[in-house]
Nucleic acid binder design. Structure first.
Length: 296
DNA sequence: ATAGAGACCTGTGTGC
DNA sequence: TGCACACAGGTCTCTA
C-alpha cells in the first residue's frame, strides 16, 4: 500500500483538480470495503462542494462545505487502493493530463461523479481500503484518529516525545516503528529504509534507545533524523511505485530507485564503508530487509 | 499491558 | 500450460 509519501503524492495530484468542484452523485459499486460504508454515506456527500484535500498519516481528508462545517470524507487506501479520473470532456489543460477513459472494472468500488462530467474512481483489488465520514472540527476525536501518533515529517517528530513512547518497550524497533500509535504514516518500506539510514538493527529492542533519565539517546536522535529524511526524500521523488501504486494521472513515483535495502535481499549494502550483504528476515509476519553488518 | 500470530482479500510471480 | 505456493505498500482482533 501506499505509505505516507505515496498518500501525500496522491493528495497533491487530487487537490488541484478536486478543490472547488461539487460532488453531484456517489456511485457505490461495491460498498463492502474493509469496513462497510456508513449508512447515508452517499447522501451525506451529494451536493457538497470540495473545499480542501488534506492528509493525516495515511488518510486522505476531503473537506466539504467548510463554511457550513460539512462532512469530511476520510479515505484509507489499504494495500492496493488507487484513484483515477475519467470522463470529463471540458477539462482545462492542467486537468487534462488526468484524463483516462479506461472501462470500469470489477475493482472500481466507488465513483464520485463531479460537476463538469468528471468522475473520480476508487479502485482497490484487495479491499483493505475503506472510507468513512468525520465531523468537521472534531477529526482528532474520531476513533480512526484519536490514537494516531506523531507525523514523521519535519518538526512534528520530536525525539523527546518518541523517547517517552519507546521507554521500557522490549518489542523490536521494526515493530514499534510500524505501530501507527507511535509514528503515524510509516510502513514496511520506509521503516526498513529509515533503520538502514540510522544504522540501527530492526531487531534491537526499542527501549534501548532511551537513556536512564528518560531522555533520547544519540541513537534515537539519529533515528528521528533518518525517518524525517527518508520521508522527505520519498515525497520529493513522488513516492515509490512497486506493483499497484500509481498517481491519479498514471505517472509513477521514483523513490524505489533509491532503496538501500527494501526488496534488495542478497545485494551488497550500499554504504561505501560496509562490506555487508542485505538480508531478509520475517518480523511480525512481515519481511524486513537490513544489513546485519552496519545496522546494530 | 504488550508481543506475536492469524485474519481479511485478490493478484502476481516462481518453481515443478 | 497448469497448479501449488509464497508473497505483496495495512491494520484489526485474538491469544499468550
Amino acid at each position: 500500500m501506499p505509505e505516507l509519501p505515496e498518500v501525500e503524492t496522491i493528495r497533491r495530484g487530487l487537490a488541484p483538480v478536486l478543490e472547488g468542484r461539487s460532488i453531484e452523485a456517489v456511485e457505490l459499486r461495491r460498498p463492502d470495503l474493509r469496513f462497510p460504508l456508513p449508512p447515508g454515506f452517499a447522501g451525506a456527500l451529494e451536493g457538497r462542494r470540495i473545499d480542501h484535500v488534506g492528509r493525516r498519516a495515511k488518510y486522505l481528508l476531503v473537506e466539504t462545505d467548510a463554511a457550513q462545517r460539512g462532512p469530511i470524507l476520510v479515505m484509507h487506501l489499504g494495500m492496493t487502493g488507487s484513484f483515477r479520473f475519467e470522463g470529463a470532456l471540458n477539462l482545462t489543460p492542467a486537468e487534462g493530463r488526468y484524463f483516462d477513459n479506461k472501462k470500469k472494472t470489477i475493482h472500481d468500488h466507488v465513483v464520485f461523479h463531479l460537476d463538469g462530467g468528471l468522475d473520480l474512481v476508487f479502485n482497490d483489488a484487495r479491499r483493505f481500503g475503506f472510507m468513512a465520514l468525520a465531523e468537521a472540527g472534531h477529526l482528532e476525536e474520531h476513533p480512526l484518529f484519536a490514537h494516531l501518533g506523531l507525523e514523521p515529517t519535519g518538526n512534528a517528530l520530536s525525539a523527546s516525545e518518541l523517547a517517552a513512547k519507546f521507554a521500557g518497550r522490549k518489542a523490536p524497533l521494526k515493530a514499534v516503528l510500524m505501530d501507527q500509535r507511535v509514528i503515524a504514516g510509516l510502513g514496511n518500506i520506509y521503516v526498513c529504509e529509515a533503520l538502514w539510514r540510522a544504522k540501527l538493527s530492526p531487531r534491537r529492542a526499542a527501549g534501548t534507545l532511551v537513556r536512564q533519565d528518560g531522555q533520547p539517546s544519540a541513537r534515537l536522535i539519529r533515528l528521528v533524523e533518518a525517518v524525517r529524511d527518508v520521508i522527505a526524500d520519498a515525497v520529493a521523488a513522488g513516492g515509490s511505485s512497486l506493483r499497484d501504486y500509481v498517481q491519479a494521472d498514471g505517472s509513477v513515483g521514483r523513490f524505489q530507485e533509491s532503496f538501500a535495502v527494501y526488496d534488495r535481499e542478497a545485494f551488497p549494502c550500499p554504504r561505501p564503508t560496509c562490506a555487508g550483504v542485505v538480508s531478509r528476515i520475517v518480523q511480525s509476519g512481515r519481511s524486513t530487509f537490513y544489513c546485519p553488518v552496519c545496522q546494530r
